[in-house]
């Protein structure tokens, strides 16, 4: 399974006295292949996260197409695109993204209960929490976790459904050396198991794990 971006561009309208358009990503092509881990680096505001969100199907490109194999993500209706994301794409977004009413373990299990009434894969969720060093906190509420712990929880959640595509936006931000290695090891393992992995980061820790490193600036690869 491959995720391909074809000539995608994203414009944002800037509100203000003299409204104008800011192009975050400019006519860009990219292909994520199975078993490969690509790292995109670049300074803040270079368009990395915008690109990743478009690839994940949660930000409409202004032009161009995103293909998951032969399926155009943005040609699908919301229901089909969401379901496809649930089954095939593991997304680790920037920031803290947890449901505060659920425990850590329940947050990790969330992707498995959206479309299934069967029993949730608690054992796999527990294994992932163990691998990211959070098994002792499985019954805590997200408010009890630090920023770094929330990032690790998001990594475990993204890997739960064994996705074919993994998109990670600054997955190691705020983590210490040991946890960076642990998280990167998990993503590397996923790639070795056949997933296509894309990392967006402005740090260098991921370089030793990636198969390919791309640099981005002004919405272009350079």
């Amino acid at each position: 399974m491959a995720l391909t971006a074809k000539s995608i561009r994203k414009d944002f309208y800037r509100a203000g006295k003299n409204s104008n358009i800011f192009t975050a990503v400019q006519m860009l092509d990219l292909e994520l292949e199975q078993g490969k881990m690509i790292e995109i680096t670049g300074r803040s505001g270079s368009g990395k996260s915008t690109l990743l969100n478009m690839l994940a199907g949660i930000l409409n490109p202004t032009s161009g197409r995103i293909l998951l194999d032969e399926v155009d993500l943005y040609a699908l209706d919301d229901e089909k695109r969401s379901r496809l994301r649930n089954e095939k794409i593991g997304l680790i977004p920037q920031g803290h993204t947890a449901l505060l009413g659920l425990t850590v373990l329940e947050n990790v299990l969330l992707p498995a209960v959206l479309y299934s009434n069967g029993s949730a894969p608690e054992q796999r969720a527990a294994d992932l929490l163990r691998q990211v060093g959070l098994i002792e906190m499985d019954n805590e509420k997200p408010n009890a976790l630090s920023g770094g712990e929330l990032r690790r929880m998001a990594v475990a959640r993204a890997l739960l459904m064994q996705p074919k595509i993994i998109l990670a936006d600054e997955p190691t931000a705020g983590l210490d050396e040991e946890n960076i290695i642990s998280v990167m090891g998990l993503l590397r393992n996923a790639a070795d198991d056949g997933a296509a992995v894309l990392l967006v980061t402005h740090e260098n820790e991921a370089a030793q794990f990636a198969d390919e490193i791309l640099h981005m600036d002004g919405g272009h690869f350079i």
């Binding site: 969401s82 379901r83 479309y115």
Partner: peptide, 9 residues
């Protein structure tokens, strides 16, 4: 957060 893990509208 629910949306990014695949929850539809």
């Amino acid at each position: 957060s629910l949306s990014i893990i695949g929850a539809s509208k």
